[in-house]
Amino acid sequence: MKEEDCLLKFEIQGGEFLDSGESSVVIKDYLKKIGIPHPFIRRVLIATYEAEMNVVAHAERGTLCFMIAEKTVVIRVQDKGPGIPDVDLAMQKGYSTATQEVRQMGFGAGMGLPNMKQNSDTLIINTEVGTGTEVIMEFTL
């Protein structure tokens, strides 16, 4: 996957909760237009929303890239941020390192990564503590 393969690309700013979550809406319109069935679209949107919100909640900034290859939708999210020290722990339902402020807004329930795993067919997490995280999710039609 190369940078130019991105059909849609979004910049994500850490901490900017109120102006985030919009990528889901744009991706939804795109998939609807090309006739993708609703249940499939919902899977993509849930996982994408969670991935975007993880960057907003934890990282400095990031990018979200939406691609389609053959019968597969690929979402790649890369961020500059703290990284995930223990991915297995982060994958556990209910585990979260979100701040109290973030939790009050209804985020940080420790369900983000589990939701991403449940709704994607493949979830790859490449992370380096102190540098950032890359998440690649594939959804096969």
């Binding site: 979550g21 809406v25 919902r42 949107l45 994408t48 929303y49 807004m105 209804g106």
Partner: peptide, 12 residues
Amino acid sequence: HKNILGVAAAKD
């Protein structure tokens, strides 16, 4: 907050 709209969109 505005983010509830993203959730509403994702879940129809």
